[in-house]
């Protein structure tokens, strides 16, 4: 088989055009390599020490730029809503009826507790170690995905997930508003945050609380998305 047949002409011309384009941009970028400038991020990481949180990335994500995180939660919320809206049909069927692979069933039974514990750990220890709410929530959602594709009997109740989702979303904004009332700044850290307690589970004021809320919200949204995507599979 010649190369010409496997690679269509459009791909080649696409490569050509984008190569010229990228080379032009790269040329501009290479000529203007930034010198060692001091960025806002460095400043923020330095400031972290005043907040008593061991993982400085968490402070930046949850506290200094907490408003962006709230916005991203809103993005995820709307995306999940949209998927639910687009994929909901009147004849909603549950997941496929045929039995899944035996290996998959046993493997899921063995693995899912580990995945859940790992997700919870990542979520709760977000202010002390690597990761946090986003990652932990998604890990939990992937554990739920594993259960959904492996066992027939398992299904998640949307009403039940909705409770978590609602409570998490509402309490995020409410914590922000409490900060506005007490400290005159939205998402202000109104709980005590002792620097001497840095490294303990209970430290950093509202930061770990917000990250756990983010984790619950992300986990429930992702589970609903995955469930919606799986459910429709049968009727087409």
């Amino acid at each position: 088989m010649s190369l010409k047949r496997t690679i269509p002409m459009t791909t080649v011309s696409g490569f050509g055009v984008s190569a010229v384009f990228i080379l032009t941009i790269l040329n501009i970028l290479m000529q203007n390599m930034p010198s060692n400038i001091y960025r806002a991020g460095d400043e923020l990481l330095k400031l972290n020490a005043t907040d008593g949180v061991a993982n400085s990335v968490t402070t930046v994500v949850v506290y200094f730029r907490g408003f962006d995180t709230l916005g991203e939660i809103a993005v995820l919320f709307i995306a999940s809503l949209g998927i639910g809206l687009m994929l909901t049909n009147n004849n909603l069927n549950n997941i496929s009826q045929e039995n899944s692979n035996f290996m998959l069933q046993i493997g899921a039974k063995l693995l899912s507790p580990v995945i859940f514990i790992f997700g919870l750990y990542i979520m709760i220890y977000g202010h002390l170690s690597v990761g946090g709410g986003f990652q932990g929530g998604v890990i939990i959602a992937s554990g739920i995905l594993l259960l959904l594709i492996s066992s027939n009997g398992f299904h998640i109740s949307h009403k039940f997930v909705e409770i978590f989702e609602t409570l998490a979303g509402v309490s995020y904004v409410v914590i922000g508003l409490i900060g506005l009332i007490i400290l005159d700044s939205f998402l202000g850290n109104f709980l005590p945050y002792d620097i001497s307690k840095m490294g303990l589970l209970l430290s950093g004021g509202i930061i770990p609380i917000i990250y756990i809320i983010v984790g619950i919200k992300v986990g429930s949204e992702m589970s609903v998305i995955v469930d919606n995507m799986l459910k429709r599979n049968i009727d087409d």
């Binding site: 809103a74 709307i78 609602t166 979303g169 509402v170 995020y172 904004v173 508003l177």
Partner: peptide
């Protein structure tokens, strides 16, 4: 945003 989250 609060309204959106609390619709349920």
């Amino acid at each position: 945003l609060l309204f959106g989250f609390s619709v349920p």
